[in-house]
Design a protein around this nucleic acid. Structure first.
Lengths: 223, 223
DNA sequence: ATTTAAGCGTTTGTATACAATAAGTCAATT
DNA sequence: AATTGACTTATTGTATACAAACGCTTAAAT
């Protein structure tokens, strides 16, 4: 694995406390590299907004609840647009991929009756596949670039998500609605369903943020 | 000026032929630096999508007409949203900044009766200030990050733009409509006016792209 | 006791050297 | 004449060394 993936994953997994300086030498030692490739990885993360430049070096970025709110607004906008465009431009092949992802999604949910953490991870992953299939069908290659950067932030909190089986089934229903709309080329219905879907996710994340014990991941506003 | 700005400007100004490899050593020599800061600048440009990674090193990215079309779609979406949110959240201070930028815009346009290139540059710059004031008032700090990356690409072609005074006055009218809508908190009207405004810009760029002689800036689709 | 200044240590920013790989050239063989 | 293979050159990727800047600790003075 290269330095960029390593550091990014560590941030996403919450292994670095937000606000913490990233010391190049210790990172380099940890992954048996020199500082040069580390610095390049950090520059990349800086351009993506996951780390913040200081006078010297960088620190891991804080994300506040307000950030989450704003980022989800953007994600809703972008993915809603992607869904509406997918309804217009999707090919049969695009449709096949979405349907396949959604079948896997349904299976993963049904496997999840015990609600263990591993199967939850599967669900999140397959869900992502479905969303990617829609973006891929949207006929706008640039949108993927922006969505990927907007999607990263909530993932920071992924390990704290918790869904009950009712929520998961509800989410599956919305997936099906989106899929139907894209299939029958109802672009506005696809957009609205996607909006609903993502806002559900946002509300869920924000609600559960309150309950997070490992509060180190959050810098509250005004501190 | 640092290496990042230097290379980025050179790409935007069209000094590097798209597809061309960026040789680190020659860039380093040109700006009296070592390769280290050059590499970091390039990594940043890579993350922004202005250069494309090769097996080894990077090349300046091609932008096709289809890219322009897609990017303007995204810009319309994002700035339309920013305008609608600005109508909801703008403060008196935000409003003042927009009005000021727009006064400067009007003045710059009236100065442009001779349609020379320098004053055109002024107009483009003041126009940008107006757009930035709206984004700043949108109450979403993350949106600025994405818009700035989406706005860069058309700038690559800026030196080829040509506006006649009729188009400029029309554009001023739309600005005023947007401003009014934001002032009177009509969010949907602000969004629609912004859509119209940016799509006008897109049509204009696409139309004039046909006439560009220095075709080296364009890689046509399928070549 | 508190505040300020100085010095030391740590960490970054830049330069450079070296090794590895890709690309280009030239020659030889079919 | 064309294609393939080997060799040579150029350029990248990584490591390391050195200098400058920042921050922290300690001591001194008010």
């Amino acid at each position: 694995m290269d330095a960029y993936e390593f550091i990014k994953d560590a941030i996403i997994e919450g292994k670095f406390v937000p606000g913490m300086r990233l010391a190049e030498e210790s990172l380099a030692k940890e992954m048996n590299l020199s500082r040069t490739p580390i610095r390049e990885a950090i520059k990349q993360l800086e351009a993506e907004g996951l780390v913040i430049p200081l006078k010297r070096g960088v620190s891991v970025r804080h994300f506040t609840k307000e950030d989450i709110r704003q980022i989800y607004d953007l994600r809703t906008l972008l993915e809603g647009y992607a869904a509406s465009q997918a309804a217009i431009h999707r090919t049969e092949d695009d449709l096949l991929k979405m349907e396949k992802a959604n079948v896997l999604y349904e299976e993963a949910i049904n496997r999840n009756v015990e609600s263990d953490m591993d199967s939850l991870k599967d669900i999140v992953e397959v869900n992502q596949k479905f969303h990617e299939a829609i973006v891929a069908a949207s006929n706008n290659e640039h949108i993927h670039f922006h969505i990927s950067k907007v999607v990263v932030v909530p993932i920071v909190f992924r390990s704290f998500y918790w869904y009950n089986s009712f929520q998961l089934k509800q989410s599956l229903e919305v997936h099906k609605t989106i899929l139907e709309a894209i299939k029958s080329r109802e672009s506005e219905r696809a957009r609205i369903a996607m909006h609903e879907h993502i806002y559900q996710g946002r509300d869920h994340v924000l609600k559960h943020l309150e309950q997070i014990k490992n509060i180190h991941l959050l810098k509250e506003e005004g501190k």
